[in-house]
Design a protein around this nucleic acid. Structure first.
Lengths: 335, 335
DNA sequence: GGCAATTACGTTAGTGCTAACGCAATTGCC
DNA sequence: GGCAATTGCGTTAGCACTAACGTAATTGCC
C-alpha cells in the first residue's frame, strides 16, 4: 500500500478510505438482512432511539455534525416514515424529532443485526479493532487539547529558524551513523553482515582507510549522514547516505552529497561512484541532479546484494540545488 | 462524545470525522504557508513526484481510489498548472500524467511544510498517533484477509440459530454474576463497597435471604444476569441487572426482567421496586415497558449513592415485549 | 418597551467522491 | 484475419456533507 508509506502525511486519505469501507459493509449487511435503513442514518437513529424527542441541534452536536446535515437527514428519515417532526410548544423555532412507531419497531428488530456487527467487527479485526478504537479515542482527545494546526505551524516556524549545518565525523556521533543507516536499510531491504560491520565501527572501516563521514545537523539534532569511502588510490565510493524519515524534503540529502563531492574534489580524486537500488527513486533523482550519471550495468564485483544501480560522478552533468539560494545561504560548514 | 459510546457501530462516522479534521488542518497549513495546493491533491501529487509520467489508473490503484476520481483531480491539477497530460505514443488509450516544472518546483519547496506536518502531528498526537497508524495498518490488512461483511453475516446467522435461555443460579456461574454487573457499574459509575460485597458472594447475600438470580444464556454463553432481592416480608427489589455490551438489543434484558417478575408473582410478593439512575435511559425504558412505574421521589433510605430513580411494579401498566412472538418462542425456561 | 445579540432551523450552492455508462484501443483466441 | 473480451479513460448523474446565508423566535439589557 503506497499510502501507508507516507505515514502521517496521508492519514486523512486512509481514514476516509477505511470509513467508506465500514459504511459500505454496514449497508451491505442491512440490505441482506432486509433492514430498511442505511448506514449513514445510524448515529441519528440510534440517538433518537435512546433519547426520543430531541431537537435538530442537540442531535447535531451529539454526533458531531452540522445542524444542516442532521436537518437534511431528518427529511430523509421522515420520507422513509421512520421519524416525524413536531413543533415545540414552548419554543416556536424548535422542531422536535421523534421516532415513529414504525421507526422504533424497525430499530428494535435491528438489535440482533447490531450485535452481529459488533461481533463481526471483532471477528474480522480482532485485537486490532480494539486498538483502533482506543487510538481513536486518544487522538480525538489529543487533538482537542493540542490543536493540530498550531503544532504544525510551530514546527514550521522552528524549522525556518533552525540552521542546517553539515559537520564532519566525531566519535560522539558514531551511534547516529548506525541509527540513520539502519533505518532505511531495515525498511527497504535488510541489514547485510557487511553493513553491520562497517556501521558499527566507522572509524576503522571508513576513516582509517582514507574516507570521510559527514552529518547534517538541524537545530542541534543530527538528521542525516553520508560517507565517502576510499576504495583504491584516487577512487572513491559514495555510500551510507541516510536522512531521518521525519526530516526528508529539507534538502539535507543534497547538502550532504555536495559536501562529500567537495571533499572528493579537495582530495583530487579521479573517480567517484555509487551503488544503489532502483527502488529508491527519490534518492536516484537526487544523485542525478548532483552530477551522478547512470551506468548501463552494475559495477563488476559489487559487494552488496541489493545493488542494481551503478552511477558515476561527472562534473559537467551537475545541476543547481532545487531549493535554491535561500536554503544554501543558511548552510554552514563546520567541524 | 456520544459516538465513542457506540463502539464499533459508529466506527465509520468517527473515522470520517477524524479524516475531515486532518484534511482541514492540512488545508489551513498550506494556506498559511502560501502553498498553492490543497490537501486532497497530496496523494496524487506526491505519487507523481516520486514516479513521474504515470497513467491515471496506476495512480488510482496506488492511492486506492477510482480512476474517475483521479481523472477529475487531474483536470484540476492541469487547470492549476501543476500537471500536464501527455498521450502515450505506444498505447493510444493512455494519457500520461507528468508534473510540470511549476508543479515540481512547488512540491520541492513544500518539503519543509511536509516535515512540519509530520512533526506537528507527532507533537499533537504523541504516542497515540503512532498507535493509530499501526492500528490502521493492521486493520487494513485484517479486512483484506477476513472480509467484514462475511464475518458479520456469519455472526448474524449464528445468533439466529442460537437459543436464548433464561436459567436460574448455579454456583458455577458466580463469576459471571460479578463480571456482568461490574462491567456496567465501572463504566457508568464506580463499584461501591456494598456492590463488591454482594456481587462477591451472591449465595450469602441474595439467595440465602430469600432472593433469586437469573442468567441469560445464548448458545452456551452467559450474556446477562438479573437478581430479585428479598427486602422484607412480601417486599422484593429488582437489582443487579446487567447484559454484556456485545449482546445488547437481543431482548435478553427484557427476558430476564420477565423471569424475575414471574418469580416475584410465584412467591405472591406484595411489592416489587427497583432503584436506578436517570442516565441509564434504555434500561429505564425497558423497566417501564415491563410494568415498572416511575415514582416522584427516590426511595427513602436508599443504600446506593447512584440511585436517583425509584420505580415500582404495577401489573396493569405492563406492555408486550417489543421483539414480539418470534423472539419469545425461542425462549425456554430451564434450571 | 425597544433593540441588539443569540439561538434554532431551513435552504442553497458547491465540493469530493462513486457508480454507471460509453468510447477507443489493445489483447486473446480461433 | 476477424471478433469478442479486456483495458484505459472520460463523462454524467447522484450522494453526503459543509459553508454560507436567510428567517423566525427568544433572550438580555438598557
Amino acid at each position: 500500500m503506497y499510502l501507508a508509506s507516507l505515514g502521517e502525511l496521508a492519514l486523512g486519505s486512509r481514514l476516509k478510505a477505511l470509513s467508506d469501507h465500514f459504511y459500505a459493509a454496514a449497508d451491505e449487511v442491512y440490505r441482506s438482512c432486509g433492514a430498511p435503513i442505511e448506514s449513514r442514518w445510524f448515529p441519528v437513529l440510534r440517538y433518537l432511539w435512546e433519547h426520543d424527542a430531541t431537537t435538530v441541534s442537540e442531535v447535531a452536536t451529539a454526533i458531531g455534525q452540522t445542524h444542516s446535515a442532521v436537518s437534511q437527514l431528518a427529511d430523509k428519515l421522515v420520507r422513509a416514515g421512520l421519524v416525524k417532526r413536531r413543533k415545540d410548544a414552548r419554543d416556536g423555532r424548535r422542531s422536535l424529532l421523534v421516532l415513529t412507531d414504525k421507526g422504533r419497531g424497525a430499530l428494535t428488530s435491528l438489535g440482533p443485526v447490531w450485535v452481529a456487527i459488533r461481533r463481526g467487527a471483532m471477528a474480522s479485526l480482532g485485537q486490532d479493532g480494539l486498538t483502533l478504537l482506543a487510538a481513536l479515542d486518544a487522538c480525538e482527545k489529543a487533538l482537542q487539547e493540542r490543536p493540530l494546526v498550531a503544532s504544525i505551524l510551530a514546527e514550521h516556524a522552528a524549522l525556518g529558524a533552525a540552521e542546517l549545518e553539515i559537520i564532519s565525523y566525531e566519535p560522539a556521533l558514531k551511534e547516529h551513523f548506525y541509527r540513520l543507516n539502519a533505518a532505511w536499510l531495515e525498511r527497504y531491504f535488510r541489514l547485510e553482515d557487511i553493513d553491520r560491520v562497517v556501521l558499527g565501527d566507522p572509524g576503522r572501516y571508513v576513516l582509517k582507510p582514507g574516507g570521510a563521514i559527514f552529518f547534517a545537523r538541524l537545530g542541534g539534532e543530527i538528521i542525516g549522514t553520508c560517507a565517502l569511502l576510499h576504495e583504491s588510490p584516487g577512487v572513491y565510493e559514495l555510500s551510507k547516505m541516510g536522512v531521518d524519515e521525519a526530516f526528508r524534503g529539507l534538502g539535507a540529502g543534497r547538502r550532504l552529497l555536495d559536501a562529500a563531492i567537495a571533499e572528493f574534489q579537495r582530495r583530487q580524486g579521479r573517480e567517484l561512484f555509487l551503488e544503489s537500488n532502483s527502488r529508491l527513486k527519490t534518492a536516484l533523482r537526487m544523485y542525478e541532479q548532483a552530477g551522478f550519471v547512470m551506468q548501463p550495468s552494475v559495477r563488476p564485483g559489487s559487494h552488496y546484494e541489493r545493488a542494481d544501480v551503478y552511477m558515476v560522478y561527472e562534473e559537467n552533468s551537475r545541476r543547481p540545488h532545487p531549493l535554491g539560494q535561500g536554503a544554501a545561504k543558511r548552510t554552514r560548514r563546520t567541524g
